[in-house]
Amino acid sequence: MSSSLEKNMLILRSSDGEEFIVPEVVAVMSKAIKNMVEDECASNTIPVPNVDANILAMVIEFCKKHDESEAEAASDLKTFDSEFVNRGQEALYDLITAANFRDVKELLDALCQNVAEMIKGKSVHHIRIQFLGYQLFEILTSNFIWNIWCDRDFD
């Protein structure tokens, strides 16, 4: 364990107790962790509450890729980003919360852009059902005329 720490490795512990060994350069892509490391208030193991192992693994994967491919072509990174953020909504929101909490700017940008792409061009009903968890009957019973007005095309 001590040998790995000499090479600037950090241990991140997720909310459900799983531990990840990450190089420091990758870990400090998160501003929150960077601040902890700079203030030297971090021991070898950094707890990452609110983020479970599954999501933390994804975040680390993203950060690693971005750290490695700094010299690589930007287009490669873009395709990786678009594939990475192409997930189900629930995972997406968990990722956003994690990225926001840990302050990983690149990840947050990519995720928000993805959600915006999903919302883009959708009708009001569609947005309500897909993103706000409205049920169909709620929409049908709400003000019908108003809804038609909302959905008119802006062209």
């Binding site: 909504q89 629930e90 929101y93 919360t97 926001n100 993103f131 706000l132 968890g133 049920q135």
Partner: peptide
């Protein structure tokens, strides 16, 4: 009735 996480739950 609604899904566990939705857009409005985000900050």
């Amino acid at each position: 009735n609604r899904a566990k996480t939705e857009l409005n739950d985000l900050p």
